[in-house]
Amino acid sequence: MRREKRASGQGRREFLKLAGLGAVVGTVAAVAGERPAEAAGSAGAPASGYRLTEHVKKAYELARF
C-alpha cells in the first residue's frame, strides 16, 4: 500500500517534470510585487483571515457589472 503510494507519487512527479513546468522557474520573483497574500496575518489562526490580493480586488473593481 505504502509502496504503491510512493510509486504513484513518483509517476506524478516524473510526469510534472516531463510536462516542462520547469520552464517557469524564477516566476515567483518576477511576480513577487503582486504575490498572493500570505495566510492569516495573525499567528494562531492558520486557516483564517486569508484575503484575495489587491490585484485581484482591482480586477474586480475594473470588472464591475
Binding site: 484575495l52 490585484h55 485581484v56 480586477a59 473593481e61 464591475r64
Partner: peptide
C-alpha cells in the same frame, strides 16, 4: 471552510479565474 475571504470592501464575486488560480 478554508478561511479565505474577499478583501474588505470588495463586492465582486470570487469565482474570477484569477482568484481561483490564486487560491
Amino acid at each position: 471552510q478554508l478561511g479565505v475571504a474577499r478583501a474588505e470592501g470588495n463586492k465582486e464575486p470570487e469565482d474570477h479565474i484569477a482568484s481561483l488560480c490564486e487560491v
